[in-house]
Design a protein around this nucleic acid. Structure first.
Length: 579
DNA sequence: GCCGTTTTCGGCCCGACTGTTTTCAGTCG
């Protein structure tokens, strides 16, 4: 099958153009629903598990996508064909897109940015800075002393706005804060909601929800938490603080009977909640964070299940709440049963002291056994990766013998012989066939030449898969969250190639990687490629990062059946066989 | 700009807190 791959317009690029359109229209004071339409479209396109460029080429009807009508479908066509949007260019002549950087500033929204631009010609952060210095802004209506104070404080801290922390970081902060707040007087429930509860790979701010008795000091305790650098706002039911790490934390307190409604509301996502609220309205009900109401009367709200039930829906797992088809699936009874940590029977990616790990083969094996695993694969690096003390053939053979010896004395756990084999620049593997044939599993990854053009990088990986001993593509995109972007690769083509050849892709659970991302997990599932969740552990306690991998898999809608290492060893070995 | 078991026009989710005012707009989630 010949595939057209000239397009370079990605979904993210289209989404960004629509978001820019929305913000500019917002500043111009356009119809708010028109603005929302652009944002909705950006969201839809940005989270789509297919490449929109491909859909355009296949003459698909884009207006069938949710929130996309004829007009936006045409605009997508234009962007795919030309890389730009003429209407955006036109708008930018009147309202420069540099104003968007002002909008990102805490306390500045569209209305104020518009006033600053029209009254004082402030069009970016630099001109705002000089205006703050020469005292001009005080003459503008709506800007008082306090606002200026905040702006002066924030202007030099652009890198801190909207800073998102990795899920693992949010996880530990959430644990210590909910622990601390639970000790306040009269606190009943206390949980972290928001994108943390939806297990997004990064978290912008932490949303904590508490229920308590009437005279609780939980709010007071919250603003006096040790790590608080600044109290942004403090009310009786909601407060916001900034921690010294820069993370924003919101605490919301509601009565006991509203717990479910508040949890639902605070977990989001916003688009998910909007759909639920609309559904409620069509049934003559109203949903807010206090409950489901029929007129003045609360008819549900204690639990989330109760609220979904009022809408005729089964419970929807937080990881699915993105308005990406989960509500339709709930309605039709086709929600996936998501994989759980308890489903995991083994871990197929870990290192030992033989390469760059910190624990020995025996230590890794006993730690895995303690976690209830039935099998693990030892995947030390191959010879090319000198930096990580990659094993040459001689050392690998020696390790294989050591594994045989270990297995002979092990009960309940099987250690599989494997290697994390480098994919060389020309797509060949770092070990010859006579070595690969003796391994139980061959895991392969890209550790060099990250800057290859998309076409060549994709071809390189697929050529590697042509090797009949190739089993698993590890950390398929090579990205490090907040540190290094993915190398340029056509993941859809890689996944199709994996499917054709009987290969698997890894969801690397290491918190800095979480690679595959959720969108690619869905793509893999849709294309019928099984995913293996591996920790890439370099020390025994790293085995515990499995839960982040499982969370990511759940966001990717994977069920246990979609995950290779939920299988028994026998079942897995059968699946690994390439015919 | 989207959308339709009430609708092809007239709707479009809902509430808290702040600052600047003096009854509320703007921002945020």
């Amino acid at each position: 099958m010949k595939r057209d791959r000239v397009s370079s317009v990605g979904n993210a690029q289209i989404a960004e153009i629509f978001n820019t359109m929305a913000s500019i229209l917002d500043i111009e004071g356009a119809n708010p629903f028109r603005i929302r339409a652009y944002r909705t479209a950006a969201y839809t396109v940005g989270n789509l598990p297919q490449n929109v460029s491909e859909l355009v080429k296949g003459n698909a009807d884009l207006s069938e996508l949710p929130g996309i009508g004829k007009d936006l479908a045409d605009k997508i066509q234009e962007i795919v064909k030309t890389g730009t949007l003429s209407q955006l260019k036109k708008l930018e002549r009147k309202t420069p897109s540099s104003l968007l950087e002002l909008m990102r500033m805490p306390g500045l929204g569209p209305k104020r940015v518009k006033v600053l631009y029209h009254d004082l010609g402030i069009k970016d952060l630099a001109s705002l800075k000089s205006a703050l210095e020469n005292g001009k802004i005080i003459e503008v209506p709506g800007f008082g002393k306090k606002t200026l104070q905040t702006l002066r404080e924030q202007i030099g801290k652009a890198e801190e706005w909207e800073k998102r922390v990795k899920l693992s970081v949010a996880d530990s902060i959430a644990a210590s804060m909910t622990d601390y707040l639970s000790q306040a007087n009269g606190v009943r429930e206390c949980v972290a909601a928001g994108s943390y509860r939806r297990r997004k790979e990064t978290v912008g701010d932490l949303d904590i929800l508490a229920t308590c008795t009437r005279h609780s000091d939980v709010m007071d305790k919250f603003v006096h938490y040790d790590g608080v650098a600044r109290v942004m706002s403090q009310g009786s039911t909601r407060s916001t603080v900034i921690l010294s790490t820069g993370l924003q934390v919101d605490l919301r307190v509601v009565p006991q009977e509203s717990y479910g409604a508040a949890l639902l509301y605070f977990t989001g996502s916003k688009p998910h909640n909007i759909v639920l609220r609309k559904m409620a309205l069509s049934r003559g009900l109203k949903i807010n964070e206090y409950g489901v109401f029929k007129g003045e009367k609360r008819v549900a709200g204690r639990t989330e299940e109760e609220i979904y039930a009022k809408l005729g829906l089964p419970y929807i797992e937080p990881e699915l709440r993105e308005d990406q088809g989960e509500i339709e699936a709930a309605r039709s009874g086709s929600l996936p049963v998501l994989v759980e940590l308890e489903d995991m029977r083994g871990d197929l990616h870990m290192h030992t002291t033989e390469s760059d790990g910190k624990s020995t083969l025996e230590e890794m094996a006993s730690a895995a056994k303690a976690r209830g695993y039935k099998y693990i694969a030892i995947t030390d690096h191959s010879q090319r990766l000198g930096m990580a003390r990659g094993l040459d053939i001689k050392r690998l053979r020696k390790q294989m013998a050591a594994i045989d010896k270990l297995n002979a004395g092990l009960k309940g756990l099987v250690v599989l012989k494997s290697s994390e084999v480098d994919i060389l620049e020309d797509g060949t593997l770092d070990f010859p066939t006579e070595v690969l044939v003796d391994l139980d599993i061959v895991t392969c990854s890209v550790h060099s030449q990250f800057k290859l053009p998309r076409e060549r990088q994709t071809d390189r990986i697929i050529r590697a898969m042509d090797n009949p001993y190739f089993n698993i593509l590890a950390h398929p995109t090579g990205r490090l969250i907040n540190q290094r972007p993915s190398y340029d690769v056509d993941m859809e083509r890689v996944l199709r190639a994996a499917k054709e050849r009987g290969c698997f892709v890894e969801l690397n659970a290491y918190p800095d990687r979480l690679d595959l991302n959720d969108v690619y997990c869905r793509m893999a599932k849709n294309l019928g490629v099984k995913v293996t969740i591996g920790t890439d552990a370099h020390v025994t306690h790293d085995l515990d990062v499995m839960r982040y991998g499982v969370w990511q898999a759940r966001r990717g809608r994977l069920s246990a059946a979609d995950v290779l290492n939920t299988r028994t060893l026998t079942q897995m070995k059968k699946l690994l066989k390439r015919t």
